[in-house]
Nucleic acid binder design. Structure first.
Lengths: 168, 168
DNA sequence: ACCCCAAATTCATATTTTGAACTCAGCATA
DNA sequence: TATGCTGAGTTCAAAATATGAATTTGGGGT
């Protein structure tokens, strides 16, 4: 009756566990509001000032303000004071380590968008190795030997934090 | 005046290009509505029926219905007819290739959530290699030799589809 | 003919988002 | 001392979305 999941083997069935501590849900709780991931895209692209971000996004100023505050509260961005010569002190937004660690999420979105949304071979940006200039991409790798595996080799199993449902 | 982006080198500045064809924006346009990525999480976990999904998510039925239709229209899920013995024909939702390719996005969200949202070392699921059982993770790899690189080695440069802004 | 079930749809109420206008603080200029 | 400018917001009314409960739909089984 229960058919195997896309990412999974025969058993155990992931559906027999609680979703309350799901890390995807936890991440989406912070990142899932409208504009938030695009704000982060801009931060990764080096945009740090409110007005520049607002102009690029076209988001309502009130929303942008709200989102930046939420990201600050979550420890993803940090307000940093700066002063341009002959202007008063202001502040800009910078990614914290927790924020920079969102990198793979943005890269994954970019790669999927490049493959399925835009015209093929017309990506507006490329990711390259800083030293060699060789293209860089996201891949699933096996711990230990660091060998690449395909999505079909992947299996999801209950981890140390899995919470079984009563009455499966 | 322009400070270097987090992911980038000295120049060219990515902010001098249009954002209209941004693949992240394109992806978020489809995936960015409330519940959508959690629906996909469930589909990856093997949930295929409307009611089971609704019960797990706690989302309003109307929304879930709307989201599934949108994912179907986008070619990410497919309605497939099935019949359980002694019941009438129904249909279930399955990921298409385009949908399965969202895998890395979900894995990236999972990994970030595991690192920053949940209690350390208490991930509810582990990703393992189907054959060896070895842990699998997402990594940035260099094309050609397939060597892993760090986020600090990464640089974003304008690609073939980059559209310069007038009057930079 | 009547009941059950999965898969929705409807509808009234809440919450969010939008866009334009307004505020605020401090430097510059007169 | 007043006036203006600029970046970074806040306010507010209208529009769009989300919520949750109740209802509908289309078969099949008894």
């Amino acid at each position: 009756m229960r058919e195997p999941p896309v990412t999974g083997g025969r058993s155990p069935d992931l559906r027999d566990y609680e979703t309350s501590n799901c890390p995807v849900a936890g991440a989406m709780d912070i990142l899932g509001e409208k504009w938030t991931l695009l704000v982060l895209r801009d931060l990764f692209a080096g945009v740090r000032r409110f007005d520049e971000m607002q102009a690029r996004l076209g988001a309502p100023r009130a929303l942008l303000s709200k989102r930046l505050r939420r990201l600050e509260d979550a420890g993803i961005v940090q307000r940093v004071a700066y002063r341009e010569p002959g202007a008063r002190a202001r502040h800009e937004y910078r990614l914290t380590d927790k924020g920079k660690d969102l990198n793979t999420i943005l890269v994954a979105l970019k790669e999927w968008g490049d493959r399925w949304v835009n015209a093929p071979g017309r990506a507006p940006t490329d990711l390259v190795d800083r030293e060699t200039g060789a293209p860089v991409r996201l891949a699933l790798v096996r711990g230990g030997d660091g060998r690449e595996v395909t999505a079909r080799d992947l299996r999801m199993v209950p981890g140390p934090g899995a919470i079984p449902k009563r009455q499966a």
